[in-house]
Design a protein around this nucleic acid. Structure first.
Length: 272
DNA sequence: CATGACTCCTGTTTGC
DNA sequence: TGCAAACAGGAGTCAT
């Protein structure tokens, strides 16, 4: 569910509440044991307890909590996760884990589908193999995108979903980027010319940054670090707008399946 | 290496 | 109306 803008919004809201704080206790609830990727659940709880969070950063859709022992706690929300700092102790139906800090602050990891993951590692790269440059970083360049797309024959939309190509892009922003660039999402990645790749690069960044200024997008159950909804829903061009008119040309937005994912596009504005 | 099918889990939407 | 299948913002594993 959460993509780069949603994870970044969560990071910004969580940071003031937890950076500099020391973890008192961690509880990974029964039934959510698979959350713990690098250790047994009880062992991970013990290893995190007593640690101080020195920084909270993000790479793609991963949150990275730098700890005072030099290790990094890497969290991923996958499809349905959210991290919420709760001012009061109200239970959440899908709370899978809870972190309590020494000052009493409570951080909840809520996750309906239980796909979320926690890694505790020496080197954060160990927790995110096959992940390329963050899509809103300097490292994500037109040249990089041209090289990566040139190596793939899959549909360009599917290529954009590959975290090696552009870390942080998910289904919403892959569709939005193709729309903004005027590219049919089914186009083979390695058939795009350099000018269209450049447009697509700029479109990826534009789609993500537009959403970032709105605090992300909420479609079903995403909530930000304070439990609020993102505002970007009202500003998407195509995602989940099938049957509605394109706001550029008025054609009806279509929905198809591409690489197993729902894909939305304007049949007139987006060309092969 | 690249690709596509399958898997994890639970709730909601769609189609007959 | 009711039920079963398909679908949901992700990504790892496996066979090819």
């Amino acid at each position: 569910m959460p993509e780069l803008p949603e994870v970044e919004t969560t990071r910004k809201q969580l940071a003031p509440a937890i950076v500099g704080q020391t973890i008192a206790t961690v509880a990974i609830h029964a039934g959510a044991e698979r959350l713990a990727m690098t250790h047994a659940p009880r062992e991970l709880e013990a290893q995190l307890s007593g640690r101080t969070i020195e920084a909270l950063t993000r790479h793609g859709k991963y949150l990275l909590a730098a700890l005072d022992d030099g290790r990094t706690w890497v969290l991923h929300l996958r499809m349905s996760g959210s991290l919420v700092v709760a001012p009061v102790d109200e239970p959440h139906r899908y709370e899978r884990a809870r972190v309590t800090f020494e000052d009493g602050t409570i951080l909840r990891f809520n996750d309906l589908r239980k796909f979320g993951t926690w890694h505790l590692v020496e080197d954060p790269r160990d927790a995110m193999p096959n992940v390329g440059p963050d899509a809103v970083s300097e490292a994500f360049t037109t040249a990089w995108l041209r090289d990566q797309l040139g190596r793939r024959s899959v549909a360009v939309k599917s290529a954009l979903l590959d975290q090696k190509v552009a870390a942080g892009v998910g289904n919403i922003y892959a569709d939005e980027a193709c729309y903004i660039a005027g590219v049919d999402p089914r186009t083979s990645a390695n058939t795009l010319g350099p000018r269209r790749v450049a447009r697509l690069h700029d479109a990826v960044v534009e789609a993500l940054e537009r959403s970032l200024t709105d605090g992300g997008t909420t479609f079903s159950n995403y909530v930000d670090g304070l439990g609020g909804e993102g505002l970007h829903k009202t500003r998407v061009h195509v995602f989940r707008r099938d049957g509605e008119p394109c706001d550029r040309c008025g054609s009806i937005i279509r929905k198809i399946r591409l690489g197993g994912r729902g894909t939305h596009y304007c049949p007139r504005c987006q060309r092969r």
